[in-house]
């Protein structure tokens, strides 16, 4: 047996090969581990120091205005927050979109680009579950990104003695809406990143889809509202995740007022389109990972 071929002169103790006879976790535990690792990686945790800069700078920028608002409310004793919870997210949409665009490639491009996806697929977790867990990681990361300033605002409101039940209702509505928004943003940015494997292209693609498109749709809405084409204005809102978010918030009385109220059958259409968008992105992601895995 060529036992010593590979051992170095400095190695004194060679215990030989030891087998593992401990517990092997099931698929659920493996998926949870993958979820936690993915969530940490979005924020650069467990990665290089450099990769922590972008997510935390963006997070600080999105928290800073909330801190100022809280300071103003507590010091001056206003009787309401100058900006609603849901609207705060809407106002900082550039930061949220940038966060999604810049961090989605971490979860969706790297494994495909470096082909380490093959090593994942040769393990118990099926390819479809892998894609879904990656999406859940990004969704939760985005949701946390939006929830941190929301919770700060809520703490400020409580400190300055605003009506508790009003605030709790508003904050819960905002959190639910943010979750729906996070699902859409994670789906779109994830799908784009899984198709364009070069990080630069992925970021630019997501910026186009999330930021530029939202700008165009908002402009169309404003122009058509100005021309009294109300239904055009509301219908245009179906074409971007951000206007879907603000439209549903408007209909649900969550603190965002659209130029043209979203009412009648429109709220249902908005919710349906939002859910279809999420479902479509997930189908796309699963198909994409399956295809790459079988190559």
């Amino acid at each position: 047996m060529p036992v010593s071929d590979l051992s170095r002169p400095g190695v004194i103790h060679d215990l030989g090969y030891r087998h593992f006879d401990g517990v092997r976790e099931g698929t659920g535990t493996i998926a949870r581990t993958l979820f936690v690792t993915g969530l940490r990686h979005v924020f650069g945790l467990g990665r290089s120091g450099k990769s922590k800069i972008m997510p935390f700078v963006l997070l600080a920028m999105s928290v800073l205005p909330a801190l100022i608002v809280v300071g103003v409310v507590v010091l001056t004793g206003l009787d309401s927050l100058p900006v609603s919870y849901a609207d705060y997210t809407n106002q900082t949409q550039l930061l949220v979109s940038l966060f999604a665009a810049s961090q989605a490639p971490v979860l969706f491009s790297r494994d495909l680009r470096h082909r380490s996806i093959v090593l994942y697929l040769a393990r118990p977790l099926p390819g479809a579950v892998f894609a879904l867990v990656r999406w859940v990681s990004l969704t939760v990361a985005l949701w946390l990104f939006m929830a941190v300033p929301t919770i700060l605002l809520f703490a400020g409101a409580m400190l300055s003695g605003l009506d508790k039940s009003d605030q709790v209702t508003a904050v819960l509505k905002a959190v639910v809406l943010q979750a729906l928004l996070a699902m859409m943003l994670a789906g779109i940015a994830g799908l784009i990143s899984s198709v364009s494997l070069r990080r630069g292209f992925a970021v630019v693609g997501s910026v186009m889809a999330l930021i530029v498109l939202a700008g165009v749709v908002t402009a169309v809405q404003a122009i058509s509202a100005d021309q009294d084409a109300d239904s055009v204005s509301v219908a245009a809102g179906l074409f971007s995740p951000w206007t879907l978010y603000s439209g549903i918030a408007d209909a649900w009385d969550a603190g965002i007022d659209e130029l043209v109220p979203v009412d009648g059958a429109w709220p249902l259409a908005y919710v349906l389109v939002a859910l279809l968008l999420v479902a479509g992105c997930l189908l796309g992601l699963v198909a994409r990972f399956r295809k790459v895995g079988s190559r």
């Binding site: 092997r24 493996i30 380490s116």
Partner: peptide, 25 residues
């Protein structure tokens, strides 16, 4: 696998630990 499949920005130590966990350890 035959082809390259290692992410360049991770250490072998971290990577092998992660892959062992993906196998259920």
């Amino acid at each position: 696998p035959e082809h390259d499949c290692l992410p360049p920005d991770v250490s072998a130590s971290d990577f092998v630990v992660h892959m062992a966990r993906m196998s259920g350890l």
